[in-house]
Nucleic acid binder design. Structure first.
Lengths: 339, 339
DNA sequence: TTGAAAGCGCTAACAC
DNA sequence: GTGTTAGCGCTTTCAA
């Protein structure tokens, strides 16, 4: 059906090698260059990446496995990654595993069959067993957002400094005199959950505050989770005077819960949220927030992957840690005595 | 590096054809079946889709070209599509063209080089020239959300009944006595914009209302666009008493603008919004809305594409039109005289 | 049921 | 600078 290089060869009277070399940036006599170009146009020749992949043993495809596509934090990372990779002629196959470990493993296998050159994964299965075959196959694996302990040294990663981010937020609150500080985390055992909890506990300790079990809540990184967690916190006899919510969706849920309970921010409760996405600016313009640099995460991940692919024989794995930023708003205030 | 069927052949002493047939569901002597399975395990054999693609002339890859990945309406469609396609062993390569016609054309070429078996496109370039090479290549092209006039009969499509959706919304408002009804549309010349405008005009005509240029606004389908459009409408001497906003982001922007102007819904203004996504339910729980069935759009698109791929020689193109739903809330009320 | 062999479209020696 | 040729790993006749 479609024209092949052989057709070009016949049309131009040139050899296959000459044509192939020309397409791959080799030098060809001016006369032949024109000849080839004319034939390409005439026959509507389109190079066949599949054949090339088979020959070169490089598919120029990167597999991306994520827990959820309907999540603005994730899509903005993917957008910026895909942009860079496609410019370098790499295609991206995205597999949404719906935060399901079984599906995640299936996705990895699926991608390996397709001979992806590299794998980028925001992991659901924190044991990392789903990546074993990829590692055995010898392709570069790059984790984003979440580190997996058992894979240290065998994979690269791009993450943010979660401990510092949480520490900074909570320290801000303790500096204002708050001592009863609630935190709403993602699912237990997730890397980011653990790290942000560590930062929270650190900050309390620095301020000489004993942490209280009942102020630590898990909201599953969903809006509903954040909503419910706030309602639970408000039921406590010793209600927190400040709140740190550790992702975008939960922050939204938390703010709505406060609104529904007719509590004002910061008059009744100080709040620090997470992840300034476009939406946020308009809805709660004055929120104090920890911002993750999602575009940079995507960019770093793409570039790191390109390094790993283009690199020398021995792939040197690297962990890139990006820092977050605390954006000052008006959702926190000093604790007044007696509140 | 990786084991091939040739290795399996050597290991088992069987011919290549036998092994290939086994993998493709052929019948093999029990004894040989076990032999092959053992060899697969021992050598960590993984089938090479690339080689298979070259041989069969089917890549089992579907290319998806969209205007923007950071858009909840689009990602939910993609999620449901990808889910179905992957189950059938099709990979999906998503290209985000940032609503840029040049990038869109590049994406199509990029995908054709990779020999995608089919193309799904939410089009930016409404002339459809970017799809010409895909059509020439003879692969099935499926439009979603937006039809392209010039391609009628040559492509399939999954869309919603935009005219009816808008008509239904506006008729609801006229039935309540409203005669000054503003509409906020997407960019001019977009398929959905045009269709929804037609539905709006129809409904006015049915009610014997003359349409007014100044009530028709274009908000670019962005939150800011919706926000600004409302501010503009509020500046009019003859302010509309009701509003129909035609996508999610603009509805959000519109509601915020009203909030900032201290206008109450529906006391001061009746509002019908668009696209009930999860977020919406909590933020503005009482909004009357037109809902698009994004999951069904994705499902229909995936299944239609599978039909086109598996179909007989002659591909029969089909336009699937899904209907929307009007969800009753409390954001509209009868027009009171003198308001 | 099984195997030998040809070939999908390309690249990369190697010889000219 | 150009052409010949041998595969990359698979599927698929065709004959046994």
């Amino acid at each position: 059906m479609a024209a092949t290089m052989k057709d070009l060869s016949r049309e131009t009277g040139l050899g296959l090698a000459t044509i192939s070399k020309y397409f791959n940036g080799g030098t060809v006599r001016e006369k032949n260059r024109l000849l080839i170009d004319a034939a390409v146009k005439k026959l509507h020749y389109v190079p066949n990446e599949v054949a090339r992949s088979l020959k070169t043993q490089h598919s120029r495809v990167i597999g991306v496995v994520i827990p959820e596509l309907s999540n603005a934090f994730i899509t903005s990372i993917i957008s910026s990654m895909e942009d860079i990779l496609r410019k370098k002629d790499y295609a991206v196959i995205v597999c949404d595993c719906r935060s399901d470990a079984k599906r995640e493993k299936d996705a990895v296998e699926f991608l390996l069959h397709r001979r992806v050159d590299g794998l980028i994964n925001m992991a659901t299965d924190m044991t990392g067993t789903h990546l074993r075959s990829a590692l055995n196959a010898g392709i570069p694996v790059l984790l984003i957002d979440r580190l997996i302990d058992g894979l240290r040294g065998r994979v690269s990663a791009v993450v943010i400094d979660n401990v510092h981010a949480a520490n900074q937020a909570v320290r801000k609150l303790t500096a204002l005199g708050h001592r009863q500080i609630g935190i709403i985390l993602g699912s237990p055992n997730l890397y980011t959950t653990n790290q942000r909890l560590v930062g929270y506990l650190n900050a309390l300790e620095e301020a000489g505050i004993r942490s209280e079990e009942e102020y630590i809540r898990y909201g599953d990184y969903t809006m509903d989770g954040g909503y419910q967690a706030v309602l639970d916190l408000l039921k406590l006899k010793r209600r927190p005077s400040a709140l740190f919510v550790t992702n975008f969706e939960m922050t939204l849920g938390a703010m709505l819960a406060l609104q529904h309970r007719k509590l004002r921010v910061p008059e009744d409760l100080s709040v620090i949220g997470f992840d300034k996405l476009e939406l946020f600016g308009e809805i709660f313009p004055d929120l104090t927030l920890i911002r993750q640099p999602q575009l940079s995460i995507g960019r770093e991940a793409a570039n790191l992957m390109l390094d790993l692919l283009g690199g020398s024989e021995k792939v040197i794995h690297r962990i890139v840690t990006l820092s977050t930023e605390l954006t000052e708003g008006h959702s926190i205030r000093p604790l007044r005595e007696g509140v």
